[in-house]
Amino acid sequence: MRKPSSDKKISGQSAFREFLRERKPMLDDVRHTVYLWKKTPLALVGTVIICLFLLVALFAPLLAPYSPIATDLSRKLEAPSAAHPFGLDQFGRDVLSRVIMGTRIEVSIIVIISVISIVIGLIVGIVAGYFGGIIDEILMRITDIFLAFPRLVLAMAFAAALRPTLTNAIIAISLVEWTVYARLARAEAMKIRSQPYIEAIRAVGASNIKIMVFHVLPMSISPIIVQLTMRMGTIILTAASLGFLGLGAQPPLPEWGAIVSDGRSYLMNNWWITAFPGMAIAVTVLGFNLLGDGIRDILDPRIRR
């Protein structure tokens, strides 16, 4: 009576071993990636910083001790204390709560700008690199026009032309960030289109759109991911700069650049209003840069060997 149960147990163990055998290459690749990650301490530091940044953004309402927009003019400009570790600003708002809630705004800025700029950049770059000729010339000359101006200056021009809001600041930054991804995608598409397997796929009747979506696009993702990670710090700096100049998030939104702008008139005597959001910007940008360096090293085939 126990034999069927025993047979089932053996069969289950065999299936599990077969499952592990099939997944062994993937598991080995994960172990190798972890090994390479451990070899780059700065990348680990960047990973920790960004993980903390994301956790703070996720649990911001629970971590913020006070409302970020609640004012108390009777206690304005109070220095850091046990009750208010980052002090109070000129309106009596808790700076710590504003910095914590500001992480959510920064995450939303990064995500939206990254998605918009990558989509535009991939479309422009892959189309230009795959077709070449006059299409490539037109698209790349448009890209060169955007690259001819400093990104911050061009973002300021777009933001000034639009109404100063956080949404318009995101649109303005997205319109200047796509050029980097377009150049990378074009270079990858130019290499891939001349590969023999692409010619074979085209010979069996695959359309250009199918080739670009299912063959060129996946091969172009790797350098885009590395560049995206390294550009996230720049996105935060640009958004903070627009907020500092009054062209981005408007009061009372607790965006880091706007908070720094609020405290610039009180910098000499009430340094905490500007110092703590400024430190948050600096540490987060450093974390993204270190993380980007680590991802670049791990994805580099010369290092993976």
Rank of each mutant, 00 (worst) to 15 (best):
I138A: 05
L154T: 03
N168K: 04
L42K: 13
F244C: 15
V107H: 02
L175P: 01
A240F: 08
A70Y: 07
V213H: 00
S265A: 13
C51A: 15
P164T: 12
L299P: 08
F276D: 10
E106I: 14
G102Y: 00
H32P: 01
T274K: 06
L27I: 13
T274N: 02
L152K: 07
I138L: 13
L228Q: 05
E188N: 01
I126H: 04
V226I: 15
I192P: 03
M230G: 01
I126G: 00
V34F: 15
R31P: 01
D136R: 05
A258E: 07
P61W: 09
G129Y: 08
R296P: 01
S194K: 06
D136I: 01
G129P: 14
V204I: 09
R21P: 01
S6N: 04
V180S: 09
I135Q: 08
P85E: 14
G294A: 11
S241K: 03
I105Q: 02
K3T: 14
W271T: 14
A203W: 02
R21E: 10
A57R: 03
A83V: 10
P68M: 02
A240L: 05
I116S: 03
R193D: 00
A83R: 04
I198D: 14
W272V: 08
L20Y: 07
F288M: 13
L291K: 04
L36E: 06
D89Q: 14
T103H: 10
V115C: 03
R305F: 12
A43T: 15
G263H: 11
A200L: 12
S6Q: 12
K38G: 05
R202M: 12
Y266E: 09
V99R: 01
L175F: 14
S114E: 07
L52W: 02
Q195K: 06
S222L: 11
L242Y: 12
R75K: 15
P196Y: 12
P61A: 04
R264T: 08
V45T: 15
Y66C: 04
L247R: 07
L154P: 02
R75H: 13
D7T: 02
K38R: 15
V216D: 04
R75V: 12
C51F: 15
I69C: 02
I170G: 09
L245V: 15
L154S: 07
M26W: 13
E22A: 09
G102C: 04
L58W: 11
M26P: 02
S207K: 08
E199I: 00
Y197D: 06
A200M: 14
I69E: 11
T143M: 10
I221G: 00
P85T: 03
S67D: 09
R202E: 11
E255Y: 04
V204Q: 09
R202Q: 04
A282W: 09
R98M: 09
S194H: 12
R151M: 15
I235A: 11
G92P: 05
L291S: 09
N270Q: 07
V34N: 07
G278F: 10
P218L: 07
R264K: 13
A282L: 15
M230F: 02
A182M: 09
P61F: 12
I259Q: 02
P252E: 05
A187E: 11
E137V: 06
S117W: 07
E18C: 03
G248K: 04
